[in-house]
Computed example of a mutant assay.
Amino acid sequence: MTNIMHILGFQQGGWGAALLAASSVTLALSVLGFILGAALGATAAAGRLSPRRVPAWLAHVYGTVFRGVPDLLTIYLLYYGGSIALTQIGTLFGSDGFVGLPTFATGVLAIGIISGAYQGEVYRGAYQAVDRGQFEACKALGLSRYQSLRLVIVPQLMRHALPGLGNVWQLVLKDSALISVIGLVELMRQAQIGAGSTREPFIFYITAAALYFVIAVVTASVFRFSEARAWRGMVHA
């Protein structure tokens, strides 16, 4: 027990501060990726619901590809493909050597693209779950399309979307660990570094699992609170 407290402590030689810092990187990466995914997902949902063939087809392809391709492969393609492109651009301006993409930015982009494919389906299903009478009421009141969406449709859409978004968030949190493969020192990568340095893999991986669990429980409670507040005073079947 003394050895564990020393390894995970905050004194000189302890790994507690490093693990907490890595946890904050994991949380920031997940939150920013989820927000980017929300924007991409909303766009994809609008495309899927569009009566026009091209936007509907593009949104369908986006969702199918990034839900079907392994997440790890998407991360590799974005990082190495983007780095190769940057290297070629750098060569044109006289730069020598490999130019790598920033790992944190790449992680946010990868998680955003992947989660956007799932969030798009959540938003599309939530939009279709809104009672059709609400749309007719908006027309009867003479509301513009923008006013209808902002004041009536989107608030009701989010009530239906929150449970699905909570599930997507859990996927995002787990996918954040995959970003360690391109060198970002987030929680999983820090646990690997600590395990290799101290030769105590069990201590570090159990600690990492506990920290992931804490983040998951706290953030899941936020989604549950938001869902309860959204349905407050309403009959929820």
Rank of each mutant, 00 (worst) to 15 (best):
G100M: 08
T91C: 01
L143P: 06
G107D: 03
A228K: 14
V222F: 12
I193N: 08
T87E: 05
V172C: 07
V172W: 08
W57N: 14
D131C: 06
D131Y: 00
P70Y: 14
A85C: 06
F10K: 09
G112N: 05
S83G: 09
A21G: 09
A195T: 11
L49H: 12
E121I: 02
R124M: 02
G196D: 03
T219Q: 10
A140T: 10
I89N: 02
L36E: 01
A208W: 06
V185W: 04
L162T: 13
S148L: 13
Q147D: 12
S221F: 07
L151G: 04
Q119C: 06
A195I: 00
D96A: 13
L29R: 02
A22V: 02
Q147F: 11
D96H: 09
A237C: 13
T74R: 05
Q128S: 12
A208Y: 03
T207N: 04
T207F: 06
A237N: 08
Q88S: 14
A177M: 03
S176L: 06
P155W: 10
V218T: 10
I193S: 04
S144V: 08
M5C: 00
G164W: 00
W57S: 13
A59E: 06
V218D: 12
A18S: 09
V108K: 04
A208Q: 13
L101T: 08
P55N: 07
F10T: 13
T219E: 06
G196F: 01
E136F: 08
A208D: 02
F98R: 14
A195V: 10
S180Q: 14
V217Y: 03
L8V: 00
G94D: 04
G166S: 14
H6C: 04
K139D: 15
F34Q: 07
H6R: 08
Y146K: 07
H6D: 05
A105Q: 10
F223Q: 03
F202W: 10
V99L: 15
G116V: 08
I7Q: 13
G166P: 12
P163F: 10
Y79I: 05
Y205H: 11
L173P: 01
L27V: 13
A28K: 05
F66C: 03
V152C: 01
S144C: 12
G16V: 07
R53S: 11
Y212P: 10
A177G: 15
Q119V: 03
F66V: 01
H236V: 14
A237K: 11
T74N: 06
L32A: 15
P155N: 07
R232M: 02
G16C: 06
F93E: 07
Q192E: 14
L77G: 12
T74S: 13
V69P: 01
A210T: 03
G9M: 08
Y212N: 12
E200N: 15
G14D: 11
V152P: 09
W15Y: 15
V217T: 13
S24E: 02
A22D: 00
G164T: 09
A208K: 07
G63V: 10
G94H: 04
L149Q: 01
T64G: 03
P51S: 15
S83K: 13
V108H: 01
A140Q: 09
R232V: 00
L165K: 11
V65K: 00
L72P: 00
Y80G: 07
A126R: 05
I111P: 01
L149T: 04
Q134F: 08
H6Y: 10
G194I: 04
